[in-house]
Nucleic acid binder design. Sequence first.
DNA 1: CGCTTGTTTGATTTGAATCAAACACGGTGG
DNA 2: CCACCGTGTTTGATTCAAATCAAACAAGCG
Lengths: 242, 242
Amino acid sequence: MRVRCHECPLRTRPAFKPKTAQEIDYLERLKRDHIRVPAGADIIRPEQDDAELYTLFAGWAFRYIQISDGRRQILNFLLPGDLIGLQPSLLDAAQHGVEALTPVELCVIPRARMFHVFADLPRLAYDVTWLAAREQTLVDDSLTTVGQRSAAERIAAFIIGLYRRADALGLVASNSFLFPLNQTHISDALGLSLVHTNKTIARLKRLGFFSIPNGAIVVHDPAGLANFAHHHETDFAPRPIV
Amino acid sequence: MRVRCHECPLRTRPAFKPKTAQEIDYLERLKRDHIRVPAGADIIRPEQDDAELYTLFAGWAFRYIQISDGRRQILNFLLPGDLIGLQPSLLDAAQHGVEALTPVELCVIPRARMFHVFADLPRLAYDVTWLAAREQTLVDDSLTTVGQRSAAERIAAFIIGLYRRADALGLVASNSFLFPLNQTHISDALGLSLVHTNKTIARLKRLGFFSIPNGAIVVHDPAGLANFAHHHETDFAPRPIV
DNA sequence: CGCTTGTTTGATTTGAATCAAACACGGTGG
DNA sequence: CCACCGTGTTTGATTCAAATCAAACAAGCG
């Protein structure tokens, strides 16, 4: 069940920056547990004030904010290697919830130890901050999409954004990757109604940009899709993983 | 011209967490310069790959993303005490620009020294990360506003959000604070057209929520406005300042 | 087999965008 | 001192993209 950090199959992927043996040792000691959460369950509840810090080891999740009258905004989707719960750990209370989209495996890092990481291994602390900055750019990008793009552009920008992230992680094979979202998720992420989301997706499919046969998406023309969305690549150097 | 960190009038405000003399010493040495930027000028250009890190000492600024065809999304507004340019410093290239909204004074922290901060003063590095997390919640909140709220709710949420930030900084006196934005800024921040922004603001004024006589805004009924916007307070503990 | 969850379709309404002008104002320069 | 800008705000008329309303449909499942 528990995966030892030295044998972590994730960190050897090309997307990630290699770590020193010393750093991995430290992480190994830091990691308190390796847990599973079923699809649909909250990893972090909104308002929770004792949320731990996690690394998403396997599966998909998303951050969201719920407003009083039931409306929900999905802030971003989380893929393997992403850090979960940094904000709540630092700020003492989660302003958002995090829900498992698929069954998920998480490496648990006790929040209480967070400050020690800064004292013990500056290099690692720096990486944590780097990851926070990276997540920020993701949300910046979404805000731009929701604020400025038309429905069709939004869907296109959203798909191409996920495609590129999945691609960087090596999850894309012959233009296709596993796609566990339903249309409600997409509409909640993009600020569109479910019906309009559906019709717009149908239109983009008809235009030949992509198709979604049984739980996987095939992006037939990534460049064309990006262009349609007026979405420009944000490519990162190999990223740290914690 | 140059303000010494020990005499910084900002850090003694109640909004900010006090720092130790040692930390302030360190900051004093870290601070390379104290510069002014005129209103309307870029503090960080989009795509710039050598942006420094700044603390906003006085004035207002905003982060924005420009998309190819001229549309612009304002990501968030920056008030005194806010950190500018952390993302670009860490990620090597700015995904966004930062523009001075008013004439601005900045404390300049050489980006190259950033890593040393982590090595030298973990406490300070932790604060930097804390501030990054806090800015994240601001953008999360905006994304929720733009994605889920109606035009009137957006304006209301936007105003009350600024009001609360200004209030925390002690900039509010008898429900009023300096308001250097024009309606174009507001529409670019909220994803609304200029015309509709204007009409919606007029409506909210007519409803008595606020008025904007010569460059200052008076929020007559903060609680009512927050309620109208379905916006719930996110209050932070005293925040660090760098 | 009926239930739930998710997708699809069509008809209708509406909020917000767009188009088009005025208007208000603080320069500023002849 | 006044005509002339430029920037920002305001107003009204019109159009349109997206929301809402209302069902049907498909598929997996206890």
